[in-house]
Design a binder for these strands. Structure first.
Lengths: 186, 186
DNA sequence: CGGTACTTTTGGTACTTTCTGAATAGAGAG
DNA sequence: CTCTCTATTCAGAAAGTACCAAAAGTACCG
């Protein structure tokens, strides 16, 4: 194929369009930039890695915007650069394994948001303990919250650490597991 | 106490302030309005229900803004109106049980965001099945995603349905549970 | 009724975030 | 070295969101 012949991007199928638009909306609801989410959706659906300008055309957003979005997605470690023979451009591909995507994004958000919160809560509890006229009620609320979050993230971390296949196993056990946990705990 | 004697709001302790500010920031990261999150944090820490104008003064935010925020928090079902004798004003209190707060908010977000996503994904898969030149790769990706989300939300629902106390039980079992699940699933 | 205490809605302003086009920088080919 | 192709940065425009003050609404009371 000649270096200067470049196929223009496949226009999106209606289904792909629907998914990408929805994914973008979901992103915004969870504090993720719409375009970033759309780029991710597109790469997720794409059988081949795509170069930035193709993404730009397909989604009808500025090239520069794609550049920043890709950078962000790489920051989340769910998109990476690959190269194709005879093409100088960077191509980008998304991780395709949904469990893996979920795992990585969760860990990243935990690191960026939950961990700092735990730190702040801990500091609050320490400070209120130290303070002479420390308000007992506030202290109780903060302690509760700290314990809860610590517990939840601990549990979550273990689940998240399971291999991809294990989830299917968990699903087969569903109900049983919960019943058992319920008994032991109740 | 005279009807017209109204204590001005207790100024926030440094610890309360720290928590409320941080909670507000966290809110924004998860797509929740900063003021809404702050109002919630304040109510969460408050031993008594608070009237809107007191919240307004304490957080230094317009009365009208507090009104909207409270309305939203009531929409989330984690804040409710109560009345105190000899005071015509509405007073607001937050649920105090952190597990309960988490449970309710999770359910609400699932209802508002995950369920619609599942619906869209299902439609996408149906449409692509029906379509004659339906792209096999896209179909596979969408099916994967749909199955994953269905599985996760199913699991999550069961966990979320556990009584508050059960979480502590789960925590005692931590490690064991995961190991067991890992074995059966691996 | 009319007045008072309180709440909600509204419309506009200020702030934030997102997006773009143009400028800049870099990297390989000739 | 220069030309071409590509990627990134940046300043300003556009869009979106949050916030406020004032107006309207509601309920209670004499």
């Amino acid at each position: 194929m000649s270096v200067h012949t470049r196929r223009s991007p496949n226009p999106l199928t209606p289904v792909a369009q629907k998914f990408i638009l929805h994914w973008g909306e979901m992103g915004t609801r969870w504090g993720i930039n719409r375009t970033v989410a759309q780029v991710h959706a597109l790469l997720f659906l794409s059988p081949q890695p795509l170069p930035a300008d193709e993404i730009s055309e397909t989604l009808a957003v500025a090239r520069s915007n794609v550049s920043t979005s890709l950078r962000e997605l790489q920051g989340w470690r769910i998109v990476r650069v690959v190269h194709v023979l005879g093409d100088r451009r960077d191509h980008f591909e998304s991780i395709k394994d949904v469990w893996e995507i979920f795992r990585i994004v969760s860990e990243e958000r935990k690191r960026r948001e939950i961990d700092p919160t735990l730190r702040v809560l801990d500091e609050c509890v320490q400070e209120i303990k130290a303070s002479p006229q420390g308000d007992a009620y506030t202290r109780e609320r903060l302690t509760d919250m700290l314990e809860f979050l610590t517990a939840m993230t601990g549990l979550f971390e273990e689940v998240i650490r399971m291999p991809a296949g294990a989830l299917k196993g968990v699903l087969k056990l569903r109900g049983k597991v919960v019943t058992m946990l319920g008994k032991k705990a109740g």
